[in-house]
Design a protein around this nucleic acid. Sequence first.
DNA 1: TGCGTTTTGATTGACGTACCTCAAAACTTG
DNA 2: CAAGTTTTGAGGTACGTCAATCAAAACGCA
Lengths: 343, 343
Amino acid sequence: MDRPTVHDLARHAKVSLATVDRVLNGRPGVREKTVARVQKAIEDLGYARDANAASLARKKPYRFVFLLPKANTQFMAALTAAIKNAETVHAALRAEIDIVQSSMLTPEEASNSIRSLDTENIDGLAIMAPETPTVRDAVINLRRSGIPVVPIITDLPDTECGHFVGINNVAAGRTAARLLGGFVAHQTGSIAVIGGQTMSRDFLDRRLGFDAVMRDRYPGLHILPTAEGADNAERVEAIARALLQRHDDLLGIYLSAAGTSGLYAALQDHPGPLPKIVVQDLTPVARKGLETNLFDIVIGQDLGHVARSAIRVMRAMKDQLPLSRDQERIRIEVFTSENLPDP
Amino acid sequence: MDRPTVHDLARHAKVSLATVDRVLNGRPGVREKTVARVQKAIEDLGYARDANAASLARKKPYRFVFLLPKANTQFMAALTAAIKNAETVHAALRAEIDIVQSSMLTPEEASNSIRSLDTENIDGLAIMAPETPTVRDAVINLRRSGIPVVPIITDLPDTECGHFVGINNVAAGRTAARLLGGFVAHQTGSIAVIGGQTMSRDFLDRRLGFDAVMRDRYPGLHILPTAEGADNAERVEAIARALLQRHDDLLGIYLSAAGTSGLYAALQDHPGPLPKIVVQDLTPVARKGLETNLFDIVIGQDLGHVARSAIRVMRAMKDQLPLSRDQERIRIEVFTSENLPDP
DNA sequence: TGCGTTTTGATTGACGTACCTCAAAACTTG
DNA sequence: CAAGTTTTGAGGTACGTCAATCAAAACGCA
């Protein structure tokens, strides 16, 4: 009934402890046949490494890297803060976290920043990057060389990563549409969507979901062509001012990317009734927007949960531990001024 | 820079390892003066027990009890399932979980079920119970005798428990009001609230929040007197049918307690347009209600998170470990048919 | 002061894994 | 089949805590 140990593995596979250890920790010098025998024993006995004993015995801490795009947004500030905080909380896991921020505006920059990582001394990589072929190749390379890679915030499909840590962005867009639509469905008029970086998968997914629900559930509303805010507050502000001025039937705006403070500024000194506003991510200015009733809904994700989950997932991948899908699922959060958590 | 160990404590407090161990694990036979010296050393060095080493060395598992009201609702079924699941996920914590369900319909029953626990062999208690003076006294008794107690789902204020695991129910009610109000605010008509057990603090808090937001933000809507659904599907069904029949200006219903299947049944065969529906807790029937568009919004909380968090909190209290408020905060979830998680 | 009692010290062996060394055995290759 | 290389075995130490033992010291009390 007790959990099997390495000793049980050795006995069952008819090899020595040293060999089991070599297999478990990927050390060289074991014939394939023997590796297979040990792995069969792992299967047969349902062995799972005792995480407590492992991290106790381990001298060197794990070295995990978070590779993030360099952007001067409140969202990125909140994300890096959450990662740093997770490091201290997870001190028991003996994980050292490096946050690497590098410009990823072009596909070349993005894949270069992946390739320039010191892959020798890395136990895992959590990455937020645009989905381009070069990025995909660079990530697949890392995976093939045995390094756990976990996409966070924005998914990288078809990169053999196995697990994405972040919300379902299609569902987030759908939710935004449902709430915004529900608030204004009794009227006829137009709805605007302000987007971000075109290469960014998360933004594309959200728009996809938003458009689908608007089309199917609220056909009476007119969706304006998506404006490119480029995650930039000034651009977003200009776009928002133009929208407010030119469309007197504007019922709602969904800001599905960064640049929230631009929208806030535009709304702040707009005379007359405001459209319903849904924005993405509970940044400080988004919170202020809710508190001042300029914004109605904020769709978000718990960045602390994202950071902690990414660390757990990298560790589980590194040590071939099972992970609980249930615990690692990041939930879409819906904030109004009524349910803001304490800052 | 390394974390201090028991050896450092012993040296700093000028006592032996054995004495440090006695203090740390509450074993008898240490003078108060010496206890104080050791505790000062803990303070000075910022010592925190290494959870990995502790759970590795520990022979006997922790014994935690979840004391829940006996009720044949889908919510309770989901809660017990989540607790059982958390036990297997947290196998590494060496925690054995007992779920005790006992009737708590009267204050006497409730406090009796607390008193009848075998407090000798318990390392912590997670409790969901109505807030009555007798319950409060029983809980305070437990706390005074050194047993960690954690209220879950519904809070027990003023019981010296230190931490509540569950959502802010006032905020949940406020959120329900904001969304329901937002959906119907352009019309005039009435809104119904169906409640549950009167003694239940969570339900009272939700109604409080709901009423406040309705009053302040949507004064045009008429709130009908709260109907007592008693967490019972048949009663709720009867109430809902009566509401639908008698109030032809009924714009929305907030079901803030159990009995969701009754509401579902009443709506299912109601001819004509339906009011907007907000229900509490993502039970199977609530999910079906969203999928079939009978319900609009479900307010919930992640029961898996509640169960895991309660276990972590009990363990932290038992071992005097610090806990991360951030990680233990349970978030209010807002579900629509657009963001239902995979079952 | 001497007695018994309480408090403290010194020491030891788990717990399950990581990581290291050295030697023995099993293979390969010419 | 000998020489070299690769693979395997045997064994030990360490990680930080728990839990227990036994002896020594400090204390209270007559």
